[in-house]
Structure formats: structure tokens, C-alpha cells
Design a protein around this nucleic acid. Structure first.
Length: 736
DNA sequence: GCGACATTGTTTTTT
DNA sequence: ACAATGTCGC
């Protein structure tokens, strides 16, 4: 090795290991073996993954080609990949970095024959799956009241997540199991006929291919010398089995996770996998990352105190070298409107200090809570962005347009067929459709084939036959006329020619206008789409686009660059961080949610959710709860959440609602946090929760105030000296 | 086949 | 409260 190269390597080595603490260092430079990293919130988990991979390549001589890194979200996968490339300074296209589903998809595209799939198989999303199962229930004459399709959907998905096929489910003579298995069977047949597979099936099918084809298995086992798994606490049974199978006898695996941040057990995630890992790989080294680089001491102590109430923990104590920081503000709101006003007033105070809107996140337990907050943000003209909610490609009009594309790609895609056969309405109603379904079922055809037969043999009324004929012709025509077009032009033409555009825009409401805009956006997306070499190998653009849409249903990326306050559920906040975090609705019944309150296991998950939320905050944490909240049209009185009581008192500044104003009925008088006072310090009006400085007592928070002019007094809770009442014009106070 | 009413069930949702 | 279904009559 040349001297120059050695020096270069030495430098690289330095960049890989510099700025790492001891624990991070031992994870990054761990010997080439199995390893488990328990990474607390904000302990530099991604950093360790990135550096570890760089280390494997630079120091252990592994080629990127031999590395497999698995994440849960596309975003995490992208971040991982770009950071690795930035660190290494060269592209690593041959490295497999992706989500479980993305990687499984890639695998199945390569091995579709072994997987017994059509080459052009398409992915069924959750909504399509639901529709399909609903239709199946009808065909099987299952009463929807007794047998909700949602339940079957849940059953099928959880069986698949447990790697169970209908044949491997033990029939216990129970009518429930019998029925569910029957539906599962019918569902599988239907999917096979239509050439579609659902999310869980991506994993299960690829797992089975590996199991049944030793040659394929050994190829991948030999190829992937090192497997890394992010958010390991969120893996389900199937994902764990998949990983274990893929890890060859000579390869190694590193899993990174945090049992305290497991919040998806209701989706099949098994924290137990962390324990299983140490059992299955007894030689695995365990490394704990406990130093937190994100939050202040105060925030961290509070979060630690809350999570300490969980019994089932691996046990980990986060610490930080950071400052104490401000106390946690706890505001007791009168109702959710008051809460929203207080929250927004806090944000205003925060941004007046020069902080950008984007440094603030409002977190809540359930999406329904966002509306009041939104209204208040709107009223105060504060730009905001709501995460979650409906994804772009989930909008009805987009799915309609996509269904045309799917049908062109694959005529036997019944889900797509059902979706657009009468959208826009073209005289094919329920009666016709039912005969169509009958026909399809008895002949074991796709709906498309059944329709062809009906048209050919004129099996229905002349009117229905003509209508069907027109639809079949239309679809074929859309296909034939755009066969050589670019994807964007094809999409544009199809939306126009199918009549979808006119249909969507026919009434001139604002809603239909925005739907039209969405269609335009879709066309634009198809124009901009390029086949991703990694994920899609050499698929035709149309197929590649459909797969991309299903697997990477990104949200509307519009105005992502505007400096806006971020609103999201606590779940959606995992993995993110903000200078100021405001958690709303911290009430019994809402958080912890009443659906989870009785079950201790689920309660612990709620608590972890609380922990996740609190540890998102870097500098300042505000928690609010409302004594009274309108929920489902009723007014409910809730007690403050038990989680609040679990926070040590000395870390909290309790700000009480000020005014004794009677309940607002329809008008909303100014009160509480937004009430204007005539008490001011210098030029600044006093606000509840306002941070001030006293020459002797130091910094504190305004809890209360009284009187005006010369008699004005404020109650301040000082960070170090407890709370005191002070005369405003005597005490030397200044606002911060 | 389609539009107008009633009925229903409302946590979280990485793919 | 509210939206998203399903049922009914035309």
C-alpha cells in the first residue's frame, strides 16, 4: 500500500472515529461480529450507523456490495445512504440500503419466477386491500356486522406478520378462526389471480423464496457479509425471521434500537425481538448509548422520571452534559380553545425571540386535536405544516387516475377495475357489477375477463353490454394510444381521455378545484419521474412508477421550504427533534388514551409515547392539558394525565389559567394567556409563562399577576429560588 | 343508476 | 361534531 494511501486512510480513520464518545466509538469500531446497540433518545444512533458502515468499508475491507442496511422509513433510508456517501466521499450504489418493504420488493422483482408472481405484479396498499376484502366478504356471504372486513384485514395482516399461511394456522374448531382462515384463503387466491401483493406479502413472499430456494438463499447469505438494522425495537416476527434467514453462517448483524421508544406494538412490532436477539446470537456484544446530545438536563430528567415508571424495561439511564435549561411549562387550560390560544401565544413569544417557526413542534395524541390548533394558527397568520393526515397518493382522485394506469399495466387488477369501471359514471351500476362479479367468480376469471365474456356472449341487457363494451374499448384505447408515450404524457392523456378530469371538475366548488390541481400535480410527478436504478432495476417506467407510488407514498412536499410550525401526532414525531416542543392534551382518557388505559401493557406503550414526545425537545418543553374538552360532540372533563404526576415537581413550572371567566358559549372573549395586561416591564407586556430576569433571584417564569400601574404585582417562579410575588415597579425585572 | 337521507363509529398508521 | 358509509326511493 502506498504511503499516500496510508495517510489518506489514516485521515479517513480519523474522520470516522473523531467526535465520537466512548460508547459510540466501541459500537463503530466493534470487531466484525454480531452486535446489539441500545441507543437512547438523542444518543447519536444514526451517527453510529453511518460511521459503522464507513468503518466496515474503510477499515474492515468490506465492499459496499456486501452490506445490507435496513430501516423502517424511506426517509431514514435516504438519510442513511446520503450520509454514508458524504462520509466516504464516493457513491455506494451497490449497497443495499432501504426499508424492509423496499428491499423485499427489489428482491421479488429480481426473483419473480421463484416467487411465483407475474413479472408485472403490483402492490396493494391498505385501502385497496380493504376494498378487496370487503368485496370478498360479499362473495362469501359474510354479514358485515358480524364479520367486519376491517377485522379480517387485521387478521390476515397479523397472520402474515407472524409468517403464518392459512395452512399453518391451527383450526381450533372455533367459528372465528374457521371464518378468518376461509377469508384468508379466498384473499390469497384473489391476490394471485389479480397479480397483486400487499405490504406484508412482500416480506412473507421473499422470506418463503429464501426458504425454498437454497441456491438463492446462499447467494444472498454469502453476499451480505454485514447486516445493519435500524429501529430494531419496531421489527415484527416476520421481519426478524427474514433477517435471521438472510444472515449467513459467516455474516454478521448489528441491530440498533431503543426499547423505550417502541410505540408500534399495536402493529405487530415485538420488543421481545431485542431479547430474542441476545438469545439467538449469544456471542453478540451489547453496547449502550446513554449520553444524550439533544435535550437539556431538565427535559431529560423529566423524561427519565416518566419512563422509569415502566416495569418492563431493559434499563438504561440517559444523561447529558448539557445545561439545566428552562423548567418545563405546564399549562392548565380551561378548554381546548384556551389551550390552543395559550400554545399559539407561546409560539409567538418564542419566535419574537428570533427563533424560526420551524424550530417548534406541536405534538398531540390523536389527529382530531389538530383542528383547534390549526384554527388558532390561521387566525394569527402563523405558517404551519401538518404531518400525517392524508398522503398525496391516497387522495381519491389520485387513486382513480392511478387505477387507470394500473389497469393499463395489468387488466386483471380487479381492485383497479372496480375503482374506475364507473368513474366517471358511465352507466355501469351495481346490478351490472354484481353480475360481473358473479361471472368472474364462477369462471375463476378476473373482472376484465368476465366483462369480455359478457360482452362477447351478450349475457346482459343490451344497455349494460354496450356500457361494458365502451369501457373495455376505452381502456384498450387508452393503452394503445399511449403505448409509446412518455409516462407523463400518457398520464395526462389518460386523465383527460377517460373523462376523469371533467368528472372531477364538473362542479365548481373549491373542493373540486383543488382536486383538479391534485391531478395536475400527479401529471407533473409522472413527468418528473425517473426510474430508480436501485429499486427498480429495469422495469418499464409505468410499472416502476406504480411501485414507487405504493412503496413511497410521500406526502405532499409542497411548501416544505416555508418556515412553518410543525404539527403532528406523537407517533409521527419519533426520530425528529425540535428546539421547542409543545405537547397538547395531556389528559387522562386522551393521553393515555382510554382505549389503552386499562391494559398495563398498552399503558406502558402510552408512557413510551410520552417519553418519545418529551425527548423530542432540545431546549424547551411545554405541556398543556384542558380541564374540559369537546370530544365526539360531547364535553368531557378529564383529569390531568398520570404522566404529568410522574414528572418531578421541581422541574415544572405550573402556569394556571388566569381569569375566572365563565365558559364561552359561542363568543370567545379574550382571557387566559392571550389576555392583554396593562402590566409591562420596559416596553414588554407581561404574559403568563413569560421568562424574566431578576437582579438577585436570576431567571424565572411569570405564573400570575395582579393589579395595575403602581400596584402591579407579578408572581414569578424562579428557577433557583422558588416562587415569589414582586412589585413590578420596585423589583428590578427585565424580560428575556 | 343516482342522488338524498340515515346510521355509524370514531388511537396511533414507518410500508 | 362530523365524516364516511349504507339504504332507500325515484
Amino acid at each position: 500500500m502506498s504511503c499516500y494511501k496510508l495517510i489518506q486512510m489514516k485521515q479517513m480513520n480519523n474522520t470516522i472515529t473523531s467526535e465520537l464518545n466512548d460508547a459510540q466509538m466501541s459500537a463503530v469500531t466493534a470487531p466484525l461480529g454480531n452486535c446489539q446497540v441500545l441507543a437512547g433518545a438523542g444518543s447519536g444512533k444514526t451517527r453510529v450507523l453511518v460511521h459503522r458502515i464507513a468503518w466496515l468499508i474503510q477499515e474492515c475491507g468490506l465492499s459496499p456490495h456486501q452490506i445490507l442496511a435496513v430501516t423502517f422509513t424511506n426517509k431514514a433510508a435516504r438519510e442513511l445512504h446520503t450520509r454514508i456517501e458524504a462520509m466516504l466521499g464516493f457513491p455506494t450504489r451497490t449497497m443495499w440500503v432501504g426499508t424492509f418493504h423496499g428491499l423485499a420488493h427489489r428482491f421479488l422483482r429480481a426473483h419473480w419466477q421463484a416467487a411465483d408472481l407475474p413479472e408485472s405484479f403490483q402492490i396493494l396498499d391498505a385501502e385497496d386491500q380493504h376494498r378487496l376484502i370487503k368485496r370478498l366478504h360479499k362473495e362469501l356471504n359474510l354479514d358485515d356486522d358480524r364479520w367486519p372486513p376491517k377485522q379480517s384485514q387485521w387478521f390476515i395482516n397479523s397472520q402474515k406478520d407472524e409468517a403464518r399461511r392459512p395452512d399453518s394456522i391451527i383450526l381450533d374448531g372455533d367459528i372465528f378462526t374457521d371464518t378468518m382462515v376461509m377469508v384468508y384463503r379466498a384473499y390469497e387466491e384473489q391476490c394471485a389471480r389479480a397479480g397483486v401483493i400487499d405490504f406484508a406479502e412482500l416480506l412473507l413472499r421473499s422470506y418463503e423464496v429464501l426458504q425454498k430456494h437454497p441456491d438463492i438463499l446462499s447467494h444472498y447469505q454469502q453476499r451480505f457479509q454485514y447486516i445493519l438494522v435500524d429501529e430494531f425495537q419496531d421489527t415484527n416476527t416476520l421481519q426478524y425471521l427474514w433477517l435471521r434467514l438472510l444472515k449467513g453462517p459467516d455474516s454478521h448483524i448489528m441491530v440498533v434500537g431503543d426499547d423505550d421508544q417502541s410505540i408500534y406494538s399495536w402493529r405487530g412490532a415485538r420488543i421481545k425481538n431485542i431479547q430474542s436477539f441476545t438469545n439467538d446470537f449469544p456471542d453478540a456484544q451489547t453496547i449502550c448509548l446513554e449520553q444524550n446530545y439533544r435535550s437539556t438536563k431538565t427535559i431529560l430528567s423529566a423524561a427519565n422520571a416518566v419512563i422509569a415508571n415502566n416495569q418492563k424495561r431493559l434499563g438504561k439511564d440517559l444523561w447529558t452534559q448539557g445545561d439545566d435549561g428552562e423548567s418545563i411549562l405546564l399549562y392548565t387550560a380551561f378548554n381546548e380553545i384556551d389551550e390552543a390560544r395559550y400554545v399559539i401565544s407561546c409560539i409567538q413569544a418564542w419566535t419574537e425571540l428570533g427563533n424560526p417557526n420551524r424550530s417548534v413542534a406541536i405534538l398531540y395524541r390523536s389527529n382530531a386535536q389538530s383542528r383547534v390548533l390549526e384554527e388558532e394558527l390561521l387566525r394569527k397568520s402563523i405558517p404551519y405544516r401538518i404531518y400525517g393526515g392524508q398522503k398525496f397518493f391516497d387522495r381519491a382522485e389520485i387513486k382513480d387516475a392511478l387505477a387507470y394506469l394500473r389497469l393499463i399495466a395489468n387488466r386483471h387488477d380487479d381492485t383497479a377495475f372496480e375503482r374506475v369501471v364507473n368513474t366517471p359514471t358511465r352507466g355501469i351500476g351495481n346490478t351490472t357489477l354484481n353480475s360481473l362479479r358473479d361471472q368472474a367468480r364462477t369462471s375463476n376469471y378476473s373482472l376484465w375477463q368476465a366483462a369480455q365474456e359478457i360482452v362477447r356472449d351478450k349475457l346482459l341487457s343490451a344497455r349494460a353490454v354496450t356500457a361494458l363494451q365502451n369501457f373495455l374499448n376505452l381502456t384498450d384505447e387508452l393503452d394503445a394510444n399511449t403505448r409509446n408515450d412518455k409516462l407523463g404524457d400518457q398520464t395526462d392523456y389518460i386523465i383527460q381521455r377517460s373523462g376523469l378530469r371533467d368528472f372531477i371538475g364538473k362542479d365548481r366548488t373549491e373542493k373540486s378545484q383543488s382536486r383538479l390541481e391534485n391531478l395536475d400535480e400527479l401529471v407533473q410527478a409522472t413527468h418528473a419521474f425517473t426510474v430508480d436504478e436501485f429499486q427498480q432495476q429495469d422495469m418499464p417506467p409505468l410499472h416502476a412508477f406504480l411501485a414507487h407510488v405504493a412503496l413511497e407514498n410521500s406526502e405532499n412536499q409542497a411548501d416544505v421550504f416555508e418556515d412553518s410550525v410543525q404539527l403532528m401526532t406523537l407517533h409521527a414525531a419519533k426520530g425528529l427533534e425540535f428546539d421547542l416542543v409543545i405537547i397538547c392534551g395531556v389528559e387522562e382518557g386522551l393521553f393515555p388514551h382510554h382505549m389503552s388505559a386499562e391494559d398495563p401493557v398498552r399503558l406502558e406503550e402510552e408512557r413510551r409515547l410520552c417519553y418519545v414526545g418529551m425527548t423530542r425537545a432540545k431546549q424547551k418543553l411545554i405541556m398543556t392539558f384542558a380541564e374540559c374538552r369537546r370530544l365526539y360532540g360531547r364535553e368531557n372533563y378529564h383529569a390531568p394525565s398520570r404522566f404529568l404526576r410522574e414528572i418531578p415537581e421541581h422541574l415544572v413550572n405550573e402556569v394556571r389559567m388566569q381569569t375566572k371567566i365563565s365558559r364561552p358559549v359561542s363568543v370567545q372573549p379574550a382571557y387566559g394567556a392571550t389576555q392583554q395586561t396593562d402590566i409591562s416591564i420596559g416596553d414588554n407586556q407581561i404574559r403568563l409563562g413569560q421568562r424574566i430576569r431578576h437582579s438577585k433571584f436570576g431567571e424565572g417564569t411569570v405564573l400570575n399577576y395582579e393589579g395595575s400601574g403602581e400596584h402591579a404585582q407579578v408572581q414569578v417562579k424562579f428557577d433557583r429560588h422558588g416562587s415569589k410575588w414582586l412589585m413590578v415597579n420596585l423589583a428590578k425585572l427585565e424580560t428575556i
